[in-house]
Simulated scan of single mutants.
Amino acid sequence: MRVLFTFNIKEDQLRSLEMGFPNTEFSFTKNIEDVPLDSYEIIVTYGEDITPSVLDRAPSLKWIMVASAGVEKMPLDVIAEKGIIVSNVRGIHKTPMAESVLAHILSLGRALPTLREQQERKEWNMKVKQTELRGSTALILGPGAIGSEIGRLLNAFGVYTIGCNSSGDRAQFMDETIPFDQLKEVLPKADIVISILPSTQETKGMLDDSYFKLMKNTALFMNFGRGDLVKESTLVHALKHGEIGHAVLDVFEKEPLPAESELWELGNITISPHVSSHSGKYVERAMEFFTENLSKWQQNDRELLNLINLKKGY
């Protein structure tokens, strides 16, 4: 069996693979276009280099392991036509992203940016507006692996958590869970609105002006899922007209965020350049998913961890 990685791993990780799977050949490239793909049964990739032409050149390909949570940039319809299985590393981001979300919430609530500004001005001012989390309500759009971990951390601070997903099925660490069609009923109750939603046909542009008008004018809106959930113009209007109190954005409609974007100029926004999931342990965690699934694969078990529904896109 031949496996192609389109990114590099550490020497000790490669040695571990070779020891654990002695009958498997592992190859590596940074440019999939330069490699003959005829004999590879498995490709391990971040996803963006998988194109229809790559798939046409890989007649033996049966499984694509995506070392990322998002698969929306891949030609899923072509992959489905060819009967190729796709799995990802859903949940790999839950620790760093949940910690990032909590860090921003605590920083704003305890006025750390303001205190830092006062320090730079050498200003001793005890009249700083601060608040606390206990007794507040957080609405989490997409209470999956990441959203549930955020909920777990918020529960520890005494926050009431409401999960919102397409089905309304109960989610872990949510005090209650609602379907998307009940979102507008719940928005006025939320002190914090956090989106971890993937990019799907259902979620693209889902939050229009009408949703922000229903939020508390003190609400903290956080988008850590995908930037196409809400148009930039909608966010600018909500922030400039006081429909919400503050926004923390890690993802944007267009990335990198253009220098001419009005978002840069607003005082009630925190801009994070899509780094909330970054961690020195990322590849290590991705390899854990891969090795467990490779063991299943070699035993002809096709019920892999984190299989992607190619029709739904997640």
Score class of each variant (00 low, 15 high):
residue 164 C to D: 06
residue 167 S to K: 04
residue 170 R to L: 13
residue 171 A to G: 05
residue 173 F to T: 00
residue 175 D to L: 08
residue 176 E to M: 14
residue 176 E to T: 15
residue 177 T to P: 06
residue 177 T to I: 04
residue 177 T to Q: 04
residue 178 I to N: 02
residue 179 P to T: 08
residue 179 P to I: 09
residue 180 F to S: 02
residue 182 Q to F: 10
residue 182 Q to M: 14
residue 183 L to F: 10
residue 184 K to E: 15
residue 184 K to T: 14
residue 186 V to Q: 12
residue 186 V to N: 02
residue 187 L to T: 01
residue 188 P to G: 03
residue 189 K to R: 15
residue 190 A to W: 09
residue 192 I to H: 05
residue 192 I to A: 02
residue 193 V to D: 08
residue 194 I to A: 09
residue 195 S to R: 07
residue 195 S to P: 13
residue 195 S to W: 08
residue 196 I to V: 14
residue 197 L to V: 07
residue 201 Q to I: 01
residue 203 T to R: 04
residue 203 T to F: 03
residue 204 K to R: 14
residue 205 G to E: 13
residue 206 M to Y: 15
residue 206 M to I: 07
residue 209 D to V: 11
residue 209 D to N: 13
residue 209 D to T: 13
residue 210 S to W: 07
residue 211 Y to R: 07
residue 211 Y to N: 11
residue 212 F to C: 05
residue 214 L to N: 12
residue 215 M to A: 00
residue 216 K to Q: 15
residue 217 N to C: 00
residue 217 N to S: 11
residue 220 L to N: 03
residue 221 F to T: 03
residue 222 M to T: 03
residue 222 M to F: 06
residue 224 F to E: 02
residue 226 R to G: 06
residue 227 G to S: 06
residue 229 L to C: 11
residue 229 L to F: 11
residue 230 V to E: 10
residue 233 S to V: 01
residue 234 T to M: 10
residue 234 T to G: 09
residue 235 L to H: 12
residue 238 A to G: 04
residue 239 L to H: 01
residue 241 H to G: 02
residue 242 G to I: 05
residue 243 E to C: 01
residue 244 I to L: 11
residue 245 G to F: 11
residue 245 G to W: 10
residue 246 H to A: 02
residue 247 A to E: 05
residue 248 V to C: 08
residue 251 V to S: 03
residue 252 F to K: 11
residue 253 E to F: 12
residue 255 E to N: 01
residue 256 P to Y: 10
residue 260 E to D: 13
residue 261 S to D: 13
residue 261 S to P: 13
residue 262 E to G: 09
residue 263 L to S: 08
residue 263 L to Q: 10
residue 264 W to K: 08
residue 264 W to G: 06
residue 264 W to H: 14
residue 265 E to C: 02
residue 266 L to V: 08
residue 271 I to Q: 10
residue 272 S to E: 04
residue 272 S to P: 00
residue 272 S to F: 00
residue 272 S to G: 00
residue 273 P to R: 09
residue 275 V to G: 00
residue 276 S to L: 07
residue 278 H to N: 10
residue 281 K to Q: 13
residue 281 K to N: 11
residue 283 V to C: 07
residue 285 R to D: 09
residue 288 E to N: 11
residue 288 E to T: 14
residue 289 F to Y: 15
residue 289 F to A: 01
residue 290 F to Q: 04
residue 291 T to M: 15
residue 291 T to Y: 07
residue 293 N to A: 02
residue 294 L to R: 12
residue 295 S to M: 08
residue 299 Q to D: 14
residue 300 N to L: 05
residue 300 N to H: 10
residue 300 N to G: 01
